[in-house]
Amino acid sequence: MDMKEKLSALLTKALEDIDQSSLVKEIESIRVSYLGKKGELTAVLKGMKDVPGEERPVIGKVANEVRDEMTQALSSKKETLEKEALEKQLAEETIDVTLPGRQMKKGQSHVLTQIMEEIEDLFLGMGYDIVEGTEVETDYYNFERVNLPQNHPARDMQDTFYITSELLLRTHTSPIQARTLEAHDFSKGPLKMFSPGKVYRRDTDDATHSHQFHQIEGLVIDKHITMADLKGTLELLAKKMFGDDREIRLRPSYFPFTEPSVEVDVSCFKCGGDGCNVCKQSGWIEILGAGMTHPSVLEMSGVDPNVYGGFAFGMGPDRIAMLKYGVDDIRQFYLNDQRFLAQFKRKG
């Protein structure tokens, strides 16, 4: 057999071997057995020295073709086998993807916290700071400093838990306003604050009353603050809390610490204003009280009411949560039944 035939026979044999292989690691050994240093092709090529000089280029070319073909067959077979192996592995690894996932226990914020945080974030964005106070307050800061002197008829509006004649559980978060006002340095800019927190009233607990509930109050004091600014701010709040389509209306009211005082209704988010059971057919839901800070409140805090003025507003997160989610018993907020708490998991 001349070189050419030898090479051709070798190729046929190699292709057969490759074709019959069924494992990736066999491919490697086939490669070594033909193309390795001691491989068969290498051995045949050693005979090149006996080939006459003029034939060498021809034989050399054939030899290269054989090597290329072998290499090609090897890699293509390897690829096929690898693909098959992978497919087999994947088939074996297939699981029931509908089985329950590994559990991750997650808790959630109290619904009242969620409501308060939403409001907090809105006002933080508008440049207000959160100021917190103590729940035990003095009669002086809780009442007198918000323009409710002893024997003021409006003290009837909020029955109070007294600890001593001087000390009480705050009935509103307003004492924080007085404390912040008197400490504020107006040369460093306007005062824009709001205070969320627990408040207490002498009420017998039932579906709509709770001796403990929450309040959020906001206060802005600067040189040129108008009632229109209050209205605009509250509109923003109403839209944020209850949806972009909401409108508000202001009604005259009375709070000793503001004048003018208004109560603020938001157009019913359930019926859109047509009248339903949520808004008691009126189309409007009362959500907050507000007004322009009373000059006496400013004066008592050492702020000149002829130069500075502003507005305050207050709302009850408990009431807002009840309205927003249709909670029909305020006591639910303080029983901490996990079946209740877990309902407010949804963030989207």
């Binding site: 006002f123 933080l124 964005g125 508008m126 440049g127 207000y128 700071d129 959160i130 800019g189 306007p190 824009k192 802005v220 600067d222 040189k223 040129h224 603050i225 108008t226 009632m227 229109a228 600014d229 209205k231 605009g232 701010t233 509109e235 923003l236 209306r249 202001l250 009604r251 005259p252 208004v262």
Partner: peptide
């Protein structure tokens, strides 16, 4: 009150901070 316009306070605003 419903004839009063709606505006927002115009004053130097620094972002509120926790």
């Amino acid at each position: 009150y419903n004839n009063i316009p709606s505006t927002l306070p115009v004053n130097e605003t620094v972002p509120g901070e926790l």
